[in-house]
Design a protein around this nucleic acid. Structure first.
Length: 578
DNA sequence: GCCGTTTTCGGCCCGACTGTTTTCAGTCG
């Protein structure tokens, strides 16, 4: 049987093709096309396999006849002749060289063509022997940068991306340090953290100031700074710790609107906005909008006025992905996204009855302080050995404690009775229906045997979803960002089962999870699923994670109507699935 | 190689920083 390629694997192949074509010296727009296709494939929520069967491949933006045929060939035969021919002309090992910072396609081609270098060891040897300086444009500085770059690639073979939560913490620390300084006018996170992307490559921060020199001086002088990567008049990059990069950009206050728009991106969105502006006779840069017919510069106080000037409704950062949002904005069809304030209750958290660190009452108070109206207690069921979960008897006893708390905090906080019940390897649950039926809401979760083969794990999920006592499927894919991929399941089938039974899908807000991921949320919504956003808090501070879960929902284009924990608790517990 | 609310052909964003250079190419975002 030939290999079945996942979306991610196909995306990686097209990304490799783009880089190899770049080294080969192909037309740069062709390269952009492959890269764009790779990017769009990686964020699809639906299997390429079923898309090729539907014949809807060409509906994906950036996929035309040539790339569409290649995807079809790869999916249906497990091979791609074009790719095999390409790597026979351009050694695949050159891709590793291109990972070295400052070694782009032009320099890699030169090393390969002029010196016959195609792997790290040979490159290192040549650099040590000062052979690289023989090449045009290579001097001592580049040579030594290559040497240190080789060490970095060896240490971190794939560019490490960090979780949104960690990136946000670091950005907040820096912003806190700078925000009240007299030489600073405005400051904002930008880039992928502002777009609430689930993983972050580097942190972008934008500052408006009349005294850029002062800002830069402060920035590079912070105690957290491990290394200054680059330092210019308006743009400086530093490294914090071993590999987390922070880019700071300083602009004059009048450029704030265009600059924040530019620095938030993503790149594809920016290209599309700039093309959109050009079509209307304006050239857009981070500094201003310039009318191309006359020499006139237009400045914007904020992003909203810029978008509106161009005839678009305001596009929230989370939707700036270059995937059709500009057309929606032009037609006034953007969704009114879920807001953090819309969330009234949290539907998954843990206490010291299982693996949580705080008592039920402490957690209830912490949730109350954050403005929540209700919380659903969901300690682990006892089947999950490692966490010392709750037994049926424990749940009865916990129920009494909950009743007391509800008397004590009546009108301020409502604690709902629930559990996070374990879905066993065969899809059965480790608590009896009778026990589940005594609770307000039941959350079911898969924690073990995530590596089951696709058909089996899909059936397992569906069996859990079809249980009439299961209201919510927790962290559906089971992924842990940077540690393990989620289950390989037939998500379309699972989502259809969830939609038809009315089972809610959780958007787990813990930064290491963010599960469902935004692309699958988008797909599930197309299939008419509904959702909850839950923190999965294990300590009091974790209730703050809600912010990240709302970010995922917003990236997927969800509104408050899609999320059931925007409802009052009375409505929620009287709601019956199905 | 993709794409079209002026286009099925002829376009395809815009600028900062560095290192190597005497005016610019390469890389990055």
């Amino acid at each position: 049987m030939e290999k079945v390629y996942s979306n991610r694997e196909v995306s990686i192949i097209f990304e490799k093709i783009a880089t190899l074509l770049e080294i080969k010296g192909e037309n740069r727009f062709k390269i952009i096309a492959y890269r764009r296709a790779a990017e769009n494939i990686s964020s699809l929520g639906k299997d390429l396999k079923s898309i090729t069967e539907d014949g809807t491949l060409r509906d994906i933006p950036g996929i035309g006849k040539a790339i569409g045929d290649k995807i079809y060939e790869l999916i249906s035969t497990g091979k791609l002749e074009f790719y095999e021919k390409l790597i026979s002309e351009v050694p695949e090992s050159l891709l590793v060289l291109a990972e070295i910072p400052e070694l782009g396609p032009q320099r890699v081609r030169m090393l390969w063509k002029k010196l016959g270098i195609s792997d790290l060891d040979v490159l290192e040897e040549a650099a040590r022997n000062k052979n690289l300086q023989k090449l045009d444009g290579f001097g001592p500085k580049i040579e030594s940068n290559i040497l240190s770059g080789i060490q970095k690639v060896r240490k971190h073979p794939f560019q490490g991306r960090i979780s949104l939560g960690r990136a946000w913490n670091t950005a907040s620390v820096i912003i806190e340090k700078m925000k009240d300084k007299p030489w600073l006018d405005k400051i904002s996170p930008a880039g992928s953290i502002r777009r609430m992307k689930d993983t972050i490559g580097d942190i972008d921060i934008l500052v408006a100031s009349r005294d850029a020199e002062r800002v830069m001086e402060f920035f590079v002088g912070m105690e957290e700074v491990h290394e200054v990567i680059l330092r210019g008049k308006t743009k400086t990059s530093i490294r914090i710790g071993s590999h987390l990069q922070v880019d700071l950009r300083v602009i004059a206050p009048e450029s704030w609107g265009t600059a924040l728009q530019y620095f938030t991106g993503n790149q594809e969105h920016n290209v599309q906005i700039r093309e959109f502006a050009l079509d209307r006779g304006y050239s857009l840069s981070e500094y201003c909008l310039r009318a191309t017919s006359e020499d006139k510069e237009i400045f914007f106080e904020n992003e909203r006025s810029l978008y509106e000037f161009l005839g678009l409704s305001y596009i929230p950062p989370e939707l700036r992905q270059g995937k059709g949002e500009i057309n929606l904005a032009r037609n006034g069809e953007l969704p009114e996204l879920l807001e953090l304030n819309d969330i009234r209750g949290d539907l998954q958290f843990h206490t010291n009855w299982s693996d949580g660190k705080a008592s039920l009452e402490e957690m209830a108070k912490a949730a109350m302080q954050r403005g929540l109206e209700y919380i659903l207690v969901t300690d682990h069921s006892h089947g999950l050995g490692i966490t010392g979960g709750v037994t049926p008897d424990d749940l009865v006893e916990q129920g009494r404690e909950i009743d007391l708390l509800n008397e004590k905090y009546e009108g301020k906080m409502r604690v709902l009775k629930g559990v996070e019940v374990e879905v066993k390897a065969d899809g059965s649950l480790d608590l009896k229906d009778q026990v589940l039926g005594s609770l307000d809401l039941v959350v079911a979760a898969v924690h073990s045997s995530l590596r089951q083969e696709r058909e089996r794990i899909t059936e397992r999920y569906i069996r859990a979803i079809e249980n009439p006592y299961v209201h919510i499927l927790a962290h559906p894919t089971g992924r842990l960002i940077g540690e393990r991929d989620g289950a390989d399941a037939d998500w379309d089938r699972i989502f259809k089962a969830a939609a038809s039974t009315g089972t809610l899908l959780e958007i787990n807000a813990t930064p290491q999870r963010l599960d469902l991921p935004d692309n699958l949320v988008r797909r599930a919504r197309e299939l008419e699923c509904r959702f909850v956003v839950s923190t999965d808090a294990h300590v009091m501070e974790h209730f703050d994670f809600l912010f990240f879960g709302v970010g995922v929902a917003r990236r997927a284009g969800l509104t408050a109507a899609d999320i059931l924990n925007t409802w009052p608790w009375e409505k929620l517990i009287n709601w019956k699935k199905g």
